[in-house]
Design a protein around this nucleic acid. Structure first.
Lengths: 256, 256
DNA sequence: GGAGAATGCG
DNA sequence: CGCATTCTCC
């Protein structure tokens, strides 16, 4: 079973690339982020034609998440349903082949200590509570998406540049760790303890060409899945060429 | 000698189609309208690679006219140079193979009796004065472009719909006639006295598919050229397919 | 740098 | 409807 995450930066603008990638990468499940469209505008037909069902939580202009799967996702839950007044479409959960899959688009956080930054830290805390309330670490869980956090120094291209910057502040990394302490494993890091590889590169300043990126997209799994983990990687090729997303897909593979 | 006119509705957005059309239609001269870019952004290299020199009078966002020719245009004159404070780039003149060619983008006129409408009528009068001051009817002249006037009932798809509408009001048609009275002939109408054929179709309402158009793009010639006229037509094919201009190219051919 | 939105124009 | 613009967000 292959589970992937990709921030596509507009599913409509990226439809051709997404379909091409589905056909070549053949993941069983893909968590998408930044759809940037409402449910009605989601390109269901083209994606179904490529062999994937879709559970969609869309939003106009910003955010929007989905779970694509070769088998039909069931028990779809949208948002965190924790009573917080939050209009952002950042979370969708569904069960695929016995695995509870959660597609997450964590807030970016903008400037350190801004309202957006506080919202980001709170989002992480709310997500942890969501897991505590609804799941057990012993269940097969896969939380996949754009987390907007580079967990460790090895996950940014230049620590001197990123020190204290949003995506890499101590508070964000602590919020991330608290979430993982539920019992989640960063599959890429588990497979490659010392590999410096990134999943996002700013469109500007030729950062991709210079490989000046950060690893902020992650596939996190609970123990039952982690025990089956056989491979994990970043699909750097998908960031190349014309009109790419600024994110590359990330994925993990699990034995039966 | 083949002389054409085409309102391309953004030369940059239409570059591929323009180059394809140049290669297939092989006009000696083409007058372009609605470049929608400044001189510096005009795609000179691609057009030179297609075998055409360019005299360009560009403008940001709106208007912009050019003369493309297989031989290099000389004595380029920009605008009407009549002392009127007019920022619109709507006229460029140049000599090509002994013919004085003038690329014209007449104002649209918006609502009848609006300021834009009055500007349009005045533009026609100014153009007539331009000819009177600088040229004689006995010289070889070709005025080509988007005239935003359908001269006769046969030039609109439905007279009942167009009666009294901008592009077809009596005042506009009179202004057009006064211009032609300098000694200019509508080459298409001269070749096809009874043919109902259009050069512009609104993008909306499937007007092209229904052939609900108007003939507002014209190649006008003075007697020395008119005497050599052997063919004239509208290139309706160029309006088909994906991302067309709303105008089709029009052209006239002259024997040696 | 690239996405979507809103706006003006034709 | 489709282009170019200005705006905001990341």
């Amino acid at each position: 079973m292959k589970i992937a995450a990709w921030n596509v930066n507009s599913v409509r603008a990226r439809l051709d690339r997404l379909v091409d990638w589905l056909k070549s990468a053949q993941p069983d499940v893909v968590c998408l982020q930044e759809l940037k469209c409402v449910d009605a505008d989601f390109p269901r037909e083209a994606i179904l034609a490529a062999g994937y069902h879709a559970a969609v939580h869309g939003q106009k202009t910003y955010n929007g998440v989905a779970i694509l799967a070769k088998t039909e996702p069931t028990d779809v839950v949208v948002g965190l349903s924790d009573g917080v007044d939050d209009t952002h479409a950042r979370v969708i959960s569904a069960t695929v082949d016995g695995v509870r899959v959660i597609s997450v688009y964590a807030p970016n956080g903008q400037e350190v200590e801004s309202d957006a930054y506080k919202y980001k830290l709170e989002f992480y805390a709310r997500l942890r509570r969501y897991l505590d309330a609804r799941h057990k670490p012993g269940e097969p869980l896969a939380l996949c998406g754009d987390w907007n956090v580079a967990p460790e120094p090895i996950d940014v291209w230049d620590v001197a540049v990123w020190e204290g910057q949003t995506l890499f502040t101590l508070k964000e990394r602590a919020a991330w760790k608290t979430l993982c302490d539920f019992g989640l494993t960063d599959t890429f890091r588990a497979m490659h303890p010392d590999v410096k590889k990134f999943s996002w590169w700013d469109y500007r300043m030729l950062q991709f060409q210079k490989n000046q990126g950060v690893r902020i997209d992650h596939v996190l799994t609970s123990a039952p899945l982690t025990q089956r983990l056989v491979a994990a990687d970043v699909d750097r090729e998908a960031r190349k060429g014309k009109q790419p997303s600024d994110h590359a897909p990330v994925w993990a593979e699990f034995k039966a």
